[in-house]
Structures are given as structure tokens and as C-alpha cells.
């Protein structure tokens, strides 16, 4: 059929690039991702098993390592729920009401993101440390915060402070207030409105925020490093333990503990990807 032949004289669509250009760009991007992201991840696990499975297990079963795991979990177990409650409360106040100074409040909530973790640790040392503003008073009360567990928890809370609010604010902004107003007009009280109308709408975004918050809480290094005092078995979290082992040239053990943290990161990424894939439209709009 004569007419059937003509579609061959169509050239490259004017709305995309030639195959060669596309291949080059994809290749370059993959090379970059490979060198900067994939290789470090692979290196962690390779180095962790460099001295065999036995050495790996020993490094992790070491009591000091186990103590650091325990402390990491304690810090996250306190910081994440508190920041979760804060995130929900702040998002509710910010997105369901109109008030002056809202954008200032949002900026302040974002603040810990733009503060160096080292400075986050520093401010607590300056506040609670022996020579800090409240140091003498705390000493007289026999309370120790810096170089002790409370300081580690506080520093962790600071650096993970915005995560949940950050996820929820755009999401709830987009959802508006109509559904809550409808629930109120149908006689629901405040708590019922939140539990039955708002919460189902934000649950996946909430989980997403908690996931990221937890990953950061368990992996935080700079801020915790400043306030911890590096007391083995007492104030060392996993990332700090990784540092100590590394600086002692105990690379295999260092990477063994690091591989636990890297696994946590991979699990977080997988869960995050799963959430985005399955519930993308129920997460913040921009990611939709």
C-alpha cells in the first residue's frame, strides 16, 4: 500500500533528542551515579567482609559495639516520637489556620536543616556544658547533660527536628480544610475530626517523614560527636563507634559496624521508594 510507506520519511521527533545524544547523556549520568553513589555503598560491604565473616561477627558482637547499638536505638526511640508529635501539631496549626507570621514560623522550623550539625552540638555545649550558661546550676543539681546520654538525645532531636513537619506541611496545605470543616458540620469533635478525617489522609506522608527522621536520628554524627565526649560503652552511638574504630586503623571492624548503618540506609531507601511508588499521590504534592 503506497500510503503505508510514508511514515518512514518521518525524522526524529522535534520534541526529543537523537538516539546518540540520549545515549551519551544517560551514560554520563549513570557513570556519575555509579562513581559517586554506588561505589561507596559497595565499598562499605566489601570492606566489612574483607577479613571474613568471622571477623565481621566478632566486630558486631563486641560488647562496646553492642552498647553503641543500644544507645543509638535509645536516642532514636526518644527523638523520633517527640518530633512526630511536634510535626503533627505544627502542621495542624500551620495548615489548618490562617495567621500572621506563618512564613516566619515555617522558616524557623526549617532552621535546624541549615545549621551545621557541629554548631547544633556546640550550642548545647555552650548552654549545658561545664562552662556553659546553665553549667554551674546543673552541676549544683548534680545533673549531667553534656558528655552524657541526655545531650546525645537533645542533639539528635535538634538535627531531626524538621523532618516530619517538612513532609506534612505541603501535604496538608494541599488537602485544605474542607474535609475537616465538613466533619465538624456533621457533629464530629476535634479529636474525632483529626482521627477519622485528617489522619487517614496523611498517614503515608507521616510514615514517610518518620522514616527519614529515623534514618537521620540513627545516623547523626557531627552534632552527637560534639556532645558525646566519646566515652566507650557509655556515650558512643554507632556512628561514633565507627569513627573510633576507623581512627584506630581497625578498618574491618569499623566497616562492619558501618555496614549495619548502611543496611539501615538501604532499607530506608527501599521503604521510601515503595511508599512513593505505591502511595505517591498521598505524599506531598510535589512528589506526586
Amino acid at each position: 500500500m503506497a500510503a503505508g510507506k510514508t511514515h518512514k520519511d518521518r525524522k526524529v521527533s522535534p520534541l526529543t533528542e537523537s538516539v546518540a545524544v540520549r545515549a551519551c547523556l544517560i551514560g554520563l549520568a549513570l557513570l556519575f551515579i555509579g562513581a559517586f553513589l554506588v561505589l561507596p555503598l559497595v565499598a562499605v560491604f566489601t570492606e566489612a567482609f574483607a577479613k571474613g565473616v568471622g571477623a565481621y561477627v566478632d566486630a558486631i558482637k563486641d560488647p562496646i559495639a553492642l552498647a553503641s547499638v543500644k544507645l543509638t536505638f535509645i536516642a532514636a526511640a526518644i527523638a523520633v516520637p517527640l518530633n512526630l508529635v511536634f510535626g503533627v501539631a505544627a502542621s495542624w496549626a500551620i495548615t489548618k489556620f490562617e495567621f500572621r507570621g506563618k512564613s516566619l514560623l515555617i522558616t524557623l522550623i526549617d532552621l535546624p536543616f541549615s545549621v551545621s550539625p557541629v554548631i547544633a552540638g556546640l550550642i548545647y555545649v555552650l548552654l549545658f556544658g561545664a562552662q556553659g550558661l546553665l553549667g554551674p546550676w546543673l552541676h549544683s543539681m548534680d545533673v549531667q547533660i553534656i558528655f552524657a546520654v541526655p545531650g546525645i538525645v537533645l542533639a539528635t532531636m535538634f538535627v531531626t527536628f524538621p523532618f516530619v513537619a517538612r513532609e506534612l506541611i505541603p501535604l496538608m496545605q494541599e488537602q485544605g480544610t474542607e474535609e475537616e470543616e465538613a466533619a465538624r458540620s456533621l457533629g464530629a469533635d476535634g479529636w474525632q475530626t483529626f482521627r477519622r478525617v485528617t489522619l487517614p489522609n496523611i498517614k503515608w506522608g507521616l510514615l514517610y517523614g518518620v522514616l527519614l527522621c529515623n534514618a537521620r536520628a540513627m545516623g547523626e554524627f557531627g552534632a552527637v560527636s560534639v556532645v558525646s565526649g566519646h566515652i566507650r560503652g557509655l556515650t558512643n552511638t554507632m556512628p561514633l563507634h565507627v569513627e573510633i574504630l576507623y581512627n584506630e586503623y581497625n578498618f574491618a571492624a569499623s566497616f562492619a559496624v558501618a555496614s549495619l548503618l548502611a543496611s539501615l540506609a538501604v532499607v530506608t531507601l527501599l521503604a521510601k521508594g515503595g511508599l512513593e511508588w505505591r502511595y505517591g499521590h498521598e505524599l506531598a504534592g510535589s512528589r506526586g
Partner: peptide, 24 residues
């Protein structure tokens, strides 16, 4: 316009095949 391509058939502008030419 040339923003999309037909699977079969031709578009003629003043008798010449426009399929040879891109939209621009």
C-alpha cells in the same frame, strides 16, 4: 502541524509532501 506523525497516509502542502519536513 507536524507535532505528531501519522501511521499511514500523507499530508500535502501545495502538492508537496510535508512529511519530509519537521514542524519547525
Amino acid at each position: 502541524a507536524g507535532l505528531e506523525f501519522a501511521d499511514e497516509g500523507r499530508i500535502l502542502f501545495d502538492g508537496t509532501n510535508a512529511g519530509d519536513r519537521q514542524v519547525g
